[in-house]
Design a protein around this nucleic acid. Structure first.
Length: 456
RNA sequence: GGCCCCUUCGUCUAUCGGCUAGGACAUCUGGUUCUCAUCCAGGUAAGAGGAGUUCGACUCUCCUAGGGGCUGCCA
């Protein structure tokens, strides 16, 4: 058998739907698994919606997910001449005819129709759905050229697939009925009929096709919300396929090695944002420590007005960090604390704000609950006193101070107010690690400030 | 209406005639703990319904019910 060639053929409307991108993922994996080619065809015949910007967005989404394609991008509009030539061929061979029709919106004109066989059964073996058959008489003749002379999807699609020498067509379930029509066109042209695989749809929690109303439906939205492309890719892959064992989080290499189209499910799969979120957390945990640290630095830079480097940020937090090694160590420590608690990349700025800036917001509820309580002011001032005497400003030492105060009754009464006082929030990394990162000077200043202005 | 397809825990799924029906997410309980997470231990929870084939059916066949797709001068 000759080389396997598959294609992803979206309409560039500016937004790539998750159901659509799953088809791209399956095509890509099939091609990479079999050593075939993954082609990209832009079906840009809808001139109103197909803009250069929309096409750029499409490329961007694919690159984000690591869906690299082979050969040059094929633009459908550039093949219109060929489409029409083939139609003439069909007209000449008696497989097509012209007829005057009135469209739904009342316009009358001459369109070219494809003539379906009137008897017999059209059948094919769908790689995912199994054997499919339909009586030819159940399918009506259909239009292939509009009255304005432009080719319609059915003919354009088939001709492009022939021209691109596509061997396997892997697309959405909504094209199943079209496949019977397309097979007839391939045959009428004497072309070899490709193999087909139809992918089920992604549905919402009500079992209806997933749409905008069900939350993020476009790839770009997941990116904005701080999902990792690897997580989205992995999750979408699992919606209708599994490696045959209990593994769920897979590397790209494993996916390529294990993916088989025959194992793709026929049934529609419900999209579960919670599992995607879990998956995202798994991938965030897998980010190499140094890489995650760099992400924090970038996040800090994006938040601040001036662009500063890693070292400057560390110094702004802790002026005692003289050497570059100390500064990097400071970031690494912060990153290691933050990474395990991060579910979405977009949560990073809030998580590190109190470390890279003195201008952080105070959560009102947390202030109310932890600071506006009798005795808290005294408690904070007492801690300022005790902390200022600490010789070795590290988490264990600081913890020992509070532990002594609590006398084994739980450190909550001290920990909670301090956390809010120095970070403005009721949650975050371990308190003593937090204090160590902030350093003595900042910790004491913030405690004093909170005691005087917020606590009661 | 017609044609085609689908049906295992709430969700994604394993099972290719032997099942005490397994895993993951979610959920609940307990442990660790300064919060939030992480981590560890455990629990609840499924074969749409009905016939048939068979020693034996979640697995095969048929019917019913429910769901989805298509039925355009959209793709």
């Amino acid at each position: 058998m000759s080389e396997i060639r598959v294609r992803f053929a979206p309409s560039p409307t500016g937004k790539v739907h998750i159901g659509n991108i799953r088809a791209a993922i399956y095509n890509w994996l099939f091609a990479r698994h079999t050593g075939g080619k993954f082609l990209l065809r832009v079906e840009d015949t809808d001139l109103e919606r197909s803009t250069p910007e929309a096409i750029a967005v499409l490329f961007d989404c694919m690159k984000w997910l690591g869906l690299d394609w082979d050969e040059e991008v094929f633009y459908q509009t550039k093949n219109v001449k060929r489409h029409l030539e083939v139609v003439d061929q069909l007209l000449a061979s008696g497989h097509a005819y012209k007829v005057e029709k009135t469209s739904r919106d009342g316009k009358t004109g001459v369109v070219t129709m494809f003539k379906m066989p009137k008897e017999g059964v059209i059948e094919f073996d769908d790689i995912v759905k199994g054997h499919m058959a339909k009586k030819a008489e159940d399918i009506q003749d259909f239009a292939i050229v509009r009255s304005d002379g432009s080719p319609i999807f059915h003919i354009a699609n088939v001709v492009d697939d022939i021209d691109q020498r596509v061997t396997h067509i892997i697309r959405g379930d909504d094209h199943v009925e079209n496949t019977f029509k397309h097979i007839c066109i391939f045959r009428a042209l004497g072309a070899e009929v490709p193999k087909y695989g139809h992918l089920s749809m992604i549905v919402n929690q009500q079992g209806k096709p997933y749409s905008k109303r069900d939350g993020a439906a476009f790839v770009g939205e997941y990116r904005e919300q701080g999902y990792l492309p690897e997580a989205l890719f992995n999750y979408l892959l699992l919606l209708g396929w599994n490696p045959g064992d209990d593994r769920e989080v897979l590397t790209r290499e494993e996916m390529v090695k294990l993916f088989e189209l025959e194992k793709v499910h026929v049934t529609a799969a419900m999209f579960d944002p919670k599992k995607l979120a879990w998956m995202n957390g798994e991938y965030i945990k897998k980010i190499p420590a140094s890489e995650f640290r760099d992400m924090l630095v970038q996040s800090a830079a994006a938040e601040g007005s001036s662009s500063r480097n890693l070292g400057e940020y560390a110094v702004s937090a802790r002026s005692d960090l003289r050497s570059a090694a100390d500064q990097i160590a400071w970031w690494d420590y912060l990153a290691s604390q933050v990474q395990v608690r991060t579910k979405f990349l977009k949560d990073i700025p809030d998580a590190i704000r109190c470390f890279v800036s003195d201008d952080f917001p105070f959560d009102e509820k947390a202030v109310e609950k932890r600071l506006k309580k009798p005795g808290v002011k005294e408690l904070l001032l007492d801690l300022v006193e005790r902390f200022s005497k600490v010789g070795d400003w590290t988490a264990p030492t600081l913890e020992a101070v509070v532990k002594e105060l609590s006398q084994g009754n739980g450190m909550g009464p001290w920990v909670h107010p301090v956390r809010v006082a120095v970070s403005g929030r009721g949650e975050g990394i371990g308190l003593f690690e937090m204090l160590q990162l902030l350093g003595r000077e900042k910790t004491l200043a913030r405690l004093r400030h909170a005691a005087e202005t917020l606590a009661s």
